[in-house]
Design a protein around this nucleic acid. Structure first.
Lengths: 197, 197
DNA sequence: CGCGGGTTTGATGATGCTCAAGCCCGGTGG
DNA sequence: CCACCGGGCTTGAGCATCATCAAACCCGCG
């Protein structure tokens, strides 16, 4: 994107690179998000923990995307979610005030930021729609199509909570749809997964 | 919000008031959203229809909120959703190009628009979270607390698809939680709702 | 009176959760 | 080299929740 040298310098002067170790927290529930993180390398997750200790994954983030809690970062409200590094990661951090300053001085930042927010909300919309209209199995296939990288980089039990299902159910969904190839021919009576025409 | 007279005139010059009759479509699936609608009076809904003809409500809108499909409006992509009036409604319409012009000429619009987008995405986030973490019943109570007006203005079968459950299930959820008052005194052993504590 | 939209109720089956084992595999320490 | 451990994945049995189908009900209206 088009930035002048001086703008780039300005950005460099307020951004700081930070390394996070696997499992290291970036933001705690109840804490106010002081920084937003642009991931250079690694994988992060955003999740809530309920009274029974169950984790529910709200967001998964890989390199070249922003992790953190936008709502807390923008409004200053305490975060409802934890954010931590799933893999060892490197990220560029920027504070809210520095962010607002960039906003003032670099027009392209305003535009970029608007686009990001829009795309973020469109993605949310799609994910919400998948919850309203799709079955667990369909949601899984949908994820497989939309973000195949997630399935590579995060373990199944995290993917399960991202899909809003139990790990056992996810395991069964995967095995059902693999079986047809695996024991091809072993069961004479087996006719495949599609009973209901 | 602070606007000069000339800014107000400018806005008035591009906005048009339109009446929609109950059940009248504002936007069809597959169509590009040319206008965004600010509801003055009435109620609108945004929903998808699947291959089996089932409707799934993505959004409900009352007076002083914006209805339409933001994604289609902003990106020019064909809408995945229908938008129609549930009650007779009056709305202020603005076209995308006029909207962008206002954007250019009125700084306060940029700011307002940013806030709206942010709040919209925070609301989406919350609703998504409710789908990941809450049971149907909890989602219903949550809606009752968050948008009680919806329960007044929209019929149950629409609320049901908004919550992602069947109308029958919603009906049962409601009756279960009303019973305690209804047959108050009919069962000698019944001692009221507050056993615990 | 009959009709239509909306809601309720019951019966039944599918789906998915929970609990409890067991498995697989890489890592660590005896 | 093997025994053991922990994290993650799988499998099975039993149960709760929910969708579906079908019927009835309710009520405002022509």
């Amino acid at each position: 994107m088009p930035l002048t040298d001086r703008e780039i310098d300005l950005i460099k002067s307020v951004v700081v690179c930070r390394k996070l170790r696997r499992r290291q927290y970036f933001l705690y529930e109840g804490e106010v998000s002081k920084y937003s993180a642009f991931i250079i390398k690694g994988a992060m997750r955003q999740y809530s923990v309920n009274d029974k200790g169950m984790e529910h994954t709200v967001g998964l983030f890989l390199e070249t995307s922003w992790a953190g809690n936008r709502e807390s970062f923008m409004t200053g409200a305490p975060s409802l979610y934890f954010v931590d590094a799933w893999e060892d990661t490197e990220a560029l951090l920027i504070s809210r005030t520095d962010y607002l300053n960039l906003w003032m001085s670099i027009p392209a930042i305003v535009e970029m930021s608007r686009k990001l927010t829009d795309e973020y909300s469109f993605a949310l919309q799609k994910r919400l729609h998948s919850f309203i209209t799709l079955s667990s199995e369909e949601r899984y296939f949908n994820l497989e199509k939309t973000y195949p990288e997630f399935l590579q980089r995060f373990p199944q039990h995290i993917i399960a909570t991202y899909l809003g299902i139990s790990r056992e159910t996810l395991s069964r969904i995967r095995s059902h749809t693999l079986k047809p190839m695996e024991h091809y021919g072993t069961f004479p009576n087996y006719v495949g997964g599609s009973h209901a025409a």
